[in-house]
Structure formats: C-alpha cells, structure tokens
C-alpha cells in the first residue's frame, strides 16, 4: 500500500462527481507495452522528438495558463490493481475543437507498479515535464505547474488528448519499466473545476515535500568542492567523509516536522 492510495480514490471520486453533475467524459483506452501505446500516433514520441520550443505564432492552443486555471500532479502506487491500465479520461473540450483557445488544464498522471516506492517519487514526478519528448507539444518552464502549448502543425495532424495521453504513457513506461499500469485524467473545463482538483493537489504537494526531505537524508550529501566527483583526485577523502556522515544517520521512525 502506498501513501497515495487514498488520493487515487479521491481523484476517482472527484471525476465521478463531475460526471454525475452532467459533465461529459470522453474515455480512451490503450493498455499494454510502450510500442503498442505509441503505435500510430500522429506525432513522434521519445527523447529529442521535439526541440522544446513552440513560438507564439506557431501555437494552436495553450493549456494551463495560471489565469485560466492550472493544476497537475503525479500519483503512484505499488498496487497496480488500483489502476485501469491505459485509461485516459477527458472532461471538457478536446484539442481539435479549441483552436486559438487558452484552456484551463488539470492533469493527473497515475502510475502503478509492484516495485515502486517513496525512493522513486522524485523521478516519477519529473515525468510530467516531457517538453522535448512529444513532437508539437511544449511545456513552459514554470515551477509547480504544467503550462503548455500545442503547435499548429501537430494539431493539423490530429494531435488531441488521446495523443497526449498515449504519448505520456509511452514515455513513462519506456523510461521506467517498473510502471506496469498507468492512467491519466485531463480536465479542460472551467477554472473552478480545475481549482477543485487543486484541493487534492495541495495535499499531494505537502506529502511530496516530506518524501523529498526524507530522501535527502537517506542519500546524504557530497562534500563541497570546486570540481565534479568523477574527475576529482580528492574523491576518496570525500567518500570517507560521506561514510562518517552515513554512520551518523541512525534509522529513526515517526518524525514530525513543523509545516513550513
């Protein structure tokens, strides 16, 4: 059981509630291996598939401008059974019908795999920012949010949320084989709908910060020096010091931290 299991349920409940309130959901499904997921996509996917920039004049639409509403986070669990692999849920308008728009954007990536643990949290979170790996898709360099653009050329070729979802799944599963199942939720309707998701996101960020701090402690520090370890003649000295510090690290459970 992972720390985020309850939040996976909360997201599902939130989506269900929106649906019950009359918001129509589009659902796509493409489970399985990365090659199967990305097969037939209208854009290239993978490392350096894109140069990372879409200029303003080449933009088809924008997602997640803070003024329109923006919320994104990653959930993971070691119980893949909680996830319906390959499922992509979209609530709100799709890309082809939104030329020139600046849509609110909520994005939740949910990953499952028996081998996943808190040690993987930081790297899993990074998969939200795949700016140069999806042709025709750019993510702006903004802290704590996904604020992105779809290019005109990609849109002309049929880039939609199924494309984006499948591309993200293929990227994650290729780079992290321990992710056995993955599900994605996109919200593009109404600032208040995205802000509703933010309530869950705030909790996720708090937990995430705690995990990051704990991971810092586990891996320890390198020592200050003016060069890089790989080429430094003092590496052995540093290693000794790291070892001393590591010895000082006693396992300690149940720590509290004043929220800051």
């Amino acid at each position: 059981m992972s720390v985020f299991d309850a939040y996976i349920r909360k997201v599902a409940e939130y989506v269900e509630a929106l649906h019950e309130n009359g918001l129509e959901a589009k659902v796509f499904s493409r489970p399985g291996a990365p090659e199967r997921i990305s097969g037939g996509l209208p854009v290239r996917v993978g490392p350096n598939a894109h140069r990372g920039i879409i200029l303003r004049s080449d933009t088809y639409l924008e997602l997640g401008n803070p003024l329109a509403g923006s919320c994104a986070f990653v959930l993971w669990t070691d119980r893949s059974s909680l996830i319906e692999d390959g499922r992509i849920t979209l609530l709100g308008p799709d890309i082809p019908e939104s030329a020139g728009e600046s849509l609110p954007f909520g994005q939740v990536l949910i990953m499952g795999g028996g081998g996943l643990s808190v040690k993987d949290h930081e790297s899993l979170v990074q998969y939200q920012y795949v700016s140069d790996q999806i042709e025709g898709y750019m993510i702006k360099s903004a802290p704590d949010r996904v604020w992105s653009r779809v290019g005109k050329e990609a849109a002309d070729r049929g880039f939609d949320f199924e494309t984006l979802g499948r591309a993200l799944m293929a990227i994650v599963k290729s780079a992290e084989p321990r992710v056995e199942a993955m599900e994605i939720v996109f919200l593009t309707t109404g600032k208040e709908v995205v802000q509703g998701l933010e309530k869950i996101a705030a909790q996720i960020r708090k937990i995430g910060k705690e995990i990051v701090k704990e991971n810092w402690k586990i891996r320890g520090y390198d020592i200050e020096c003016a060069s890089d370890c790989r080429s430094c003649p003092e590496k052995r000295v540093c290693d000794d010091i790291r070892e001393v510090i590591a010895v000082r690290k006693k396992g300690s459970k149940g720590k509290d931290r004043g929220e800051r």
């Binding site: 402690k217 520090y221 006693k250 720590k255 931290r257 004043g258 800051r260």
Partner: peptide
C-alpha cells in the same frame, strides 16, 4: 532536516 536523522521534530 536533510541530514540529521535523530531529531524527531524540527521547525523554523
């Protein structure tokens, strides 16, 4: 907070 494990509560 990143390096001293023994302290059970810390804040600023």
């Amino acid at each position: 907070i990143r390096n001293v494990q023994a302290t059970r509560f810390s804040t600023v």
